[in-house]
Design a protein around this nucleic acid. Structure first.
Lengths: 111, 111
DNA sequence: TTCATAATTCGATACTACAAGAATTATTGT
DNA sequence: ACAATAATTCTTGTAGTATCGAATTATGAA
């Protein structure tokens, strides 16, 4: 993860509707949800939801998969791991006795 | 951590100079660094650095401690843990068999 | 008190992002 | 091909945020 990628991702998350949508998708796992369903659950206008999901996708945090007439949006967990890893990189000079993030980011195997 | 706090924190981090300053302070631990030193190391105008650090502080990510004529900025690690915890909350419906973030956030004891 | 250093605040200007609704594209079923 | 549904793109107006340099406040030392 480079600085520019992290800035894009953080900027994408720094908005009420997008943050809510992203957190919802985090809970849904790799199956994801279509734009319309997310808009309905969060009570956001469909046209706005499209825009916000596109922003998250351009930032690399989401991917899409078409299923029939629905487009499923789902979290790119690897990207998310990279982002968190970037933020806590070399935390406290890598001194495990002092640091609350000594491990990097967990569980590379599952996603 | 509430949504509004997370938005403030994410928005504060979504800027090149602020992200660089924050990552530098993450590495420094709880001693922190004064504004001038950070500005010098990152080659940022002092007036800009003040503005950016104030933004990070208002977002709750940094705290300050005056030492003589220097003001040391240092990471609020508890806030940072809350932020990351908020982002990965209930990830994958808390199914550890599938999820890459099954643990929440590590090491509450150190900071 | 007076000077030098550290840091912040305050203009003005430019840029980027947001919101709302109308119009457009894409896919499925008849 | 035609209608219906899902989703995106476009347009316009508005609001927030970044930048730069100058001026201001606060601290420590002579």
């Amino acid at each position: 993860m480079k600085s520019d990628d992290a800035i894009m991702a953080l900027g994408a998350l720094a908005q009420e509707d997008r943050l809510a949508a992203f957190r919802l998708l985090m809970m849904e796992g790799s199956q994801g949800l279509p734009s319309g369903t997310i808009a309905e659950r969060l009570d956001i206008a469909p046209t706005r939801m499209s825009f916000h999901l596109a922003t998250l996708e351009k930032a690399g945090l989401l991917n899409t998969r078409r299923e029939g007439r629905h487009i499923h949006y789902f979290v790119d967990y690897q990207k998310m791991r990279s982002l968190l890893g970037f933020l806590i990189e070399d935390c406290c000079g890598n001194n495990p006795a002092v640091c609350c993030f000594p491990v990097g980011v967990p569980n590379q195997e599952t996603h």
